[in-house]
Design a protein around this nucleic acid. Structure first.
Lengths: 219, 219
DNA sequence: ATAAATCGGTTGTATTTACAACGGAAAAGA
DNA sequence: TCTTTTCCGTTGTAAATACAACCGATTTAT
C-alpha cells in the first residue's frame, strides 16, 4: 500500500497533505486495496456503498445499461480521481450505476464514516481531507451540469460541438485527444454510434473540425 | 429575519439544529434576505457566487437558454431546498446557469466561507450544518444523475416514462401532480413541447397513463 | 503467423423528432 | 365584464435519428 502514497498525494482528496500524514491516515481511514481487470465491474447498480474509491491506475467508467442494452456512460474516472462521494450520506440508498474497469485498474477504498467523522485526535490533515472531499463533490456536481449541457442539445452535431468545445477549452488548445473511442463517445453523448460517426464526417466536410482516431482539432 | 427561523429549521441544511441555535447562527453566517418577483432572475450565468441560497417561499428554476432560445431546465428548487452548493470551492469559477424565480420568492443568502470555515467557538451546531451541507451536495449529485438517466433515453416516450415512473416512486403513489406545466416539462426533458404533448396523448391512447393538467396516473 | 475480435466509416430505410402554425379553453388582467 | 394572455392539444412537413447490415483496417489473442 505504501508504494501508492506518492500517487495519493497528487489526488484532489489528499491535496495539501504530506506523504507522512497520508501514511498515518491509511490505517485511520481503513484503506484497502482493490485490483480489477479490464472488463470487470468494481460495483454494480443496486449495491450499497460505504467507501470512497480512489483510482490509482487504469480507468473506470460510471455507466448504466438499460433493459434494451442501451448503454449510457455517465462519467469517466481518471487516475487520481475518485468515486462514491454521492453516496456518503447514511441514508443515501443504492448505487444508481455500474462502475466498470475499462482498463486493468487499481483502486484504494476508504471508509466513508471514518473520513467524515473527525477522529479523536482531530488531526489537521484529517480536516483538510474533509474539506478536499467537500470541494471534490462540488466539482463533480458541476461536471454533471456540464454534461447535462451537452446531452440536452437537440441534434447530434450540437452535442458534439458542445462536448468538443469544452474539451478544447479545458485543455486550452484547439488540438486535443479525447479519452473515448467512437462507441464510448456515442454512449457518453447518448446518440447512435453510426449516426454520430456520420455526423463527425459531415462536420469535417463542412470544415468545422479535423480528426484522426481520437485526436481532434477545432477549426 | 427571525420569522423565517421555523422554516429554516425544517430545511436539510439546518436539520438537527434547534431554533435558538439557528438564531445564533444567523449573524455568524452573515444571513441576508432576498426577495424576487415572478419572472425575476436571482442569478445570471457567469456571475460569481459567494453564498448558499436557501428558498423560504416561492419556487426557483435552475436553467439555461442557449443562443437559439432553447431553454433547458436543469433543476427545480422547492421551498426549503437550496442552491449554490456546487460553487463553494474557492476556485469554482462562474455560474453555469441562470436562476429564475418562477413564483414570487423569498430567499436567504448565507456566506459560504463562514459556513465551511468552522468558527472560533467551534460550536456543535456549526459542524452539524457543515455535515448537512455535505449530505445535501451529495444528494443533489444523485438528483443530477437521475436526471441524466431521463434525458439520456432515446425517445420522447422513454424519457416521459423514465421521469413519470420516478415521480410515482418518489411519491409512493401511481397518482401524483408534477410541478411543471407542459412547456416546462419539455424544457426539463429537453424535447419539443408539441411533440411531447402529442406523445403524452398517444401514451394515454395506448393505455399507459391518464392525466388531466398536471395530475398524472400511471396504469 | 494466423485467427479472431474490435473499431470506424458507409449506406439505406423506417421511425422519430423539431418546427411552424393554428384554435379552443382556461386563466389572468384591466 | 371584456380583453388579453397563457396553456395545451392537433396537424403536416421537413429534418434528424436509430437501426441494421456490411466492409476494410487495425488490434488483440492464440
Amino acid at each position: 500500500m505504501k508504494k501508492f502514497i506518492p500517487i495519493l498525494k497528487s489526488t484532489k482528496l489528499f491535496a495539501g497533505v504530506t506523504e507522512d500524514e497520508i501514511a498515518a491516515m491509511l490505517s485511520c481511514l481503513d484503506a484497502r486495496l482493490g485490483e480489477y481487470q479490464k472488463g470487470e465491474y468494481v460495483f454494480r447498480e443496486g449495491e450499497h456503498l460505504n467507501h470512497i474509491t480512489v483510482l490509482i491506475s487504469g480507468e473506470l467508467h460510471i455507466q448504466r445499461d438499460d433493459y434494451w442494452g442501451n448503454r449510457t456512460i455517465i462519467n469517466r474516472i481518471a487516475v487520481g480521481e475518485m468515486f462514491g462521494e454521492a453516496y456518503i450520506a447514511p441514508e443515501s440508498g443504492a448505487l444508481l450505476n455500474d462502475v466498470l474497469a475499462v482498463e486493468d485498474s487499481t483502486v484504494i477504498f476508504f471508509d466513508v464514516r471514518r473520513i467524515i467523522t473527525v477522529c479523536s485526535s482531530a488531526c489537521r490533515f484529517h480536516s483538510m481531507v474533509v474539506q478536499n472531499l467537500f470541494f471534490a463533490i462540488s466539482e463533480k456536481n458541476k461536471a454533471l451540469i456540464r454534461k447535462l449541457g451537452h446531452i440536452s442539445k437537440r441534434t447530434t452535431r450540437e452535442k458534439l460541438i458542445s462536448y468538443l468545445s469544452e474539451e478544447a477549452k479545458r485543455r486550452n488548445s484547439a488540438n486535443f485527444t479525447i479519452p473515448f473511442n467512437r462507441q464510448q463517445l456515442a454512449d457518453f453523448l447518448s446518440v447512435d454510434r453510426s449516426a454520430m460517426s456520420n455526423e463527425l464526417c459531415k462536420m469535417r466536410d463542412d470544415g468545422l473540425i479535423e480528426f484522426e482516431k481520437n485526436q481532434f482539432r477545432l477549426l
